[in-house]
């Protein structure tokens, strides 16, 4: 690998009482990479981010951020990273501009010195610069939090679920901003529960119950899905799902938007036979199509395979 490593995590383990929040995590993130952590609530995303920000001590293993150990050199790390926690953590009773100035001052800089970096994002907030942060809409709070995380020109940005609860339009705009920041050379670690956002990362890690289920590029992740996959359609969707589940050869049946994704236990599927079965069960307008798996298909398959569903 020619590029330098921005984050290296080795055998990282963390317990909270009897709960194993992180279990033997190993990963390396390159400088300039946009790296996504995909997983549900409780998968361990926030714990991992807090360890990388040097806010939490690991029980076992270690983590290096920008070449510094998170336990012994936390001061060096904190200067060089920007962290946007999952919960809105700015001062609600300070104005937009006061919040930004506060964060700049804490890091020994000024808004003016790094204005060019935050301009794209902050300029959208400037008409409201005197409004209290607590009175902003969800989308605007998110932009302000990102501006505050960027104002000291960090080399590495950690964004913990920045788009949770945000509508599809604002989510798309947020990811466009991340793309621009990456072009400016900032390494970005972002966590999300949305599978469609995973495709926008250079590489992703699936997290479930404190362990990684796979780390690769979106393309590489999808190649872990090995069975032939079919999209089955019918207007009676709920009946279709139940009927497919009752089919003796069915391996997996999951609703996916307007169709149902199906895999068969046998090495190859006779589409005509399945069609005949569904028609004999009273379904009309059945269509079956061989399709390529998505990231979400792969995550589901990995969850099934590795028994990550014990808590589901």
């Amino acid at each position: 690998m020619t590029s330098k490593t921005a984050v290296r995590v080795t055998g990282l383990t963390k317990h909270f009482g009897s709960v194993e929040a992180l279990r033997e995590i190993n990963l390396a993130i390159h400088e300039g990479e946009l790296f996504g952590f995909i997983g549900a609530d409780g998968a361990g995303k926030t714990t991992l981010f807090r360890i990388l920000c040097a806010l939490l001590l690991p029980d076992k293993g270690n983590a290096e951020v920008l070449g510094f150990d998170t336990v012994t050199a936390f001061r060096e790390i904190r200067k060089r990273i920007g962290y946007m926690p999952g919960r809105f953590s700015l001062y609600q009773d300070l104005s937009v501009e006061e919040n930004l100035r506060f964060f700049a001052t804490v890091f020994g800089t000024t808004i003016k010195a790094n204005y060019e970096l935050i301009k794209d994002i902050y300029s959208q907030l400037e008409p409201f610069r005197n409004r209290m942060a607590g009175k902003l809409s969800g989308g605007m709070k998110q932009k302000l939090a990102l501006s505050c995380a960027l104002v000291h020109r960090p080399e590495l940005l950690l964004l913990d679920e920045p788009t949770t609860g945000v509508d599809a339009v604002s989510r798309r705009e947020f990811w466009q901003m991340l793309g621009k920041l990456q072009k400016k050379g900032i390494t970005i670690l972002v966590s999300t529960p949305y599978m469609d956002e995973a495709a926008l990362c250079d590489r992703i890690a699936f997290l479930q119950n404190g362990a990684t289920l796979g780390i690769d590029t979106p393309k590489g992740i999808v190649s872990l899905f090995t069975r032939p996959l079919y999209a089955v359609r019918s207007l009676q969707k709920h009946i279709l799902i139940n009927t497919l589940r009752q089919y003796e050869h069915a391996a997996s049946v999951y609703a996916f938007g307007s169709c149902v994704h199906y895999t068969d236990k046998r090495p190859s599927l006779d589409q005509g036979e399945l069609q005949a079965y569904l028609t004999s069960c009273g379904l009309n307008g059945v269509q079956i199509e061989h399709i390529e798996p998505s990231i979400e298909d792969t995550f589901i398959a990995l969850l099934e395979e590795k028994g990550g569903l014990k808590n589901a």
Partner: peptide
């Protein structure tokens, strides 16, 4: 927003 924050399999079980 009943299904926020769960994995894709749990989300489908809810449906």
């Amino acid at each position: 927003e009943p299904t926020g924050g769960v994995d894709p399999v749990t989300r489908r079980r809810f449906w």
